[in-house]
Design a protein around this nucleic acid. Structure first.
Lengths: 332, 332
DNA sequence: TTGTATGCGTTATCAC
DNA sequence: GTGATAACGCATACAA
């Protein structure tokens, strides 16, 4: 637990010089540097990050608030964020909000304590009415739609566009009664609504009638809930030949339910998801999906945040590009 | 950005009294407390965590080092750890090691900087020879086998026992040529070897011959690699009627490959995994597995760490209990 | 019950 | 090129 002072004493220099060596200042004589480095090694010196943080007014840590890391999509995203942060010498502390407005607001408060240099926040529970809460004295990047006018950067998925393309993909493969498995939205511009908009737009494009009965809303986007709902849809006699699921996770549950009921995929019903989680490739049948390019989103989120932390101004919005990935679940 | 001093001035008391109020000290007159609280609200005061950390010599953050959060098993574990830590008012910062020894050692160095109060480390790349590296001046809980003699707590999975039960489960369902999909182990007491031990013990129990040709080692435990290997096993004419996979993730790849080759599961080959990831329930066929009770492991890991952070002594080992979960992939 | 003094370890400033 | 000084904001020990 040696301190800079200990090192300075051992090397016969002032603490300041040690600090200069540590931080790679240019104006240090080589022989001095060598002495200091030797003393540091001898004493097994380690910087005390807490002291440095206090002095510098920074922590080198960014917060990442997601509903739950144990959801394939967020796990994938978190992994990408951590990797991108690592490249910039930033650490990532993860908060789980459970997708509730309350917890999302609480996380926003945390960074006020200078716990984090900045925050990447996945807003699921918060709505446009909460814009005020985003006026915090540190950089925030919202992972989600541009639903706030506050001074924050946004990294958004191509929700409407991706959904539109997914539904068109189903139609291209011959589907005419396309159902959608979506969520109960707390906000008017959340993921569910935006993808639903894409769904409706696609129907318009295609000249298909919008049938509210085909839009199935679930309280919770879990595999289990999706399986149950699809089970109910089929046994309830709902007529559909295509199914667009809000997420790949929900699609996994849907595929399972269809298998249980001996509804053949893709012959009887074609299924497409959204997110392109890794597991989708290995399901039987493999899952068609919309890939929103998490990699680019993560890189952009960390990049925007880092720029703002370093004093950059202005609020940007990044919308990633999507790709429809055709696999067995929508084969002709 | 008000400080304690600002609040004290506003409330007409000393900084110390403000501090006492913040930290809930008992001996503060109610009227004084009220004054202080009012001033805090008025100035929107927030504790500066960096300063508090420096003073207290603690950060309130624990590190969690795993190969990658984007692997179902570790995602599940991370979620449980974060939740358990939250209950104890600790935050969790995640480091991804990529399962390399190098990075695992690097993480051990990090906490030396008083970045974390303690560390939960999933050792995959490190071996018994690295015991010395664990002698660090802060609490460490190893997630993995008791392969080190260092002063660290262990939270281990019932690797050998779980594997033994899994293989016995296959045999009970009629399998006689049971293959195992495992990893190339860098250490002599890693997960692969321990589960392989369980595999061999089970064969002994059952009076079945050990055939090295049935033990398939892979460099990487990904779904893709597993699929490729199983494909090669089948097309190469390897004769097996049961398959024990090191992880559920590998099993997912295996199931996919078997489906591609029209090998019926469970009729032709029965498959069982290890980990009980959530996805397993929804696969077609659903995946039998060994559940090592992550919840208990996570709770125990955080508990042990918290106890050590608070000065508790002694090194403990917690081995969770397992359950074999029978699903369709091993149905008779 | 409240206040004073002091130090945690680092680094910015500015002088030498 | 190097060093003295001060300050970051808080909490501990002790005094009043």
């Amino acid at each position: 637990m040696a301190t800079i002072a200990d090192v300075a004493r051992a090397a016969g220099v002032s603490p300041m010089t040690v600090s200069n060596v540590i931080n790679g200042h240019p104006h240090v004589r080589d022989s001095t540097r060598a002495k200091v480095l030797a003393a540091m090694t001898a004493l097994d010196y380690r910087v005390n990050v807490a002291a440095r943080n206090l002095r510098r007014g920074r922590t080198g840590v960014i917060g990442l608030a997601v509903p739950e890391v144990n959801r394939p999509y967020f796990a994938q995203f978190a992994a990408a964020i951590i990797a991108a942060a690592q490249r910039r010498d930033l650490r990532v502390s993860i908060e789980q909000t459970g997708a509730t407005r309350e917890n999302e607001l609480a996380v926003l408060g945390l960074s006020r304590n200078r716990l984090y240099d900045g925050l990447i926040l996945s807003t699921v529970g918060m709505g446009a009415a909460d814009t005020e809460h985003l006026k915090v004295p540190y950089p925030v990047v919202i992972l989600g739609e541009r639903i706030f006018n506050g001074p924050v950067d946004h990294v958004a998925m191509p929700n409407a566009g991706g959904a539109r393309a997914a539904v068109r993909h189903l139609a291209d493969r011959g589907c005419r009664r396309i159902a959608m498995l979506t969520g109960v939205e707390t906000t008017e511009v959340g993921v569910s609504e935006l993808r639903l908009t894409g769904y409706r737009l696609a129907l318009q494009d295609l000249g298909l009638r919008y049938d509210p009965g085909l839009v199935q809303r679930m309280d919770e986007m879990s595999m289990g809930a999706a399986a149950e709902r699809v089970h109910a849809m089929v046994t309830g006699g709902l007529d559909f030949d295509g199914l667009f699921c809000l997420t790949d996770t929900a699609a996994m549950g849907a595929l399972r339910a269809l298998a249980d009921l001996a509804v053949a995929v893709p012959e009887d019903v074609k299924v497409i998801g959204f997110d392109n989680i890794e597991e989708g490739r290995f399901l039987v049948p493999s899952l068609s999906t919309v890939d929103p390019d998490h990699q680019a989103m993560a890189e952009s989120a960390v990049g925007l945040l880092a720029r703002r932390i370093d004093g950059g101004a202005g609020h940007e919005e990044f919308v990633s590009r999507f790709t429809v990935i055709a696999r067995e679940s929508t084969a002709v």
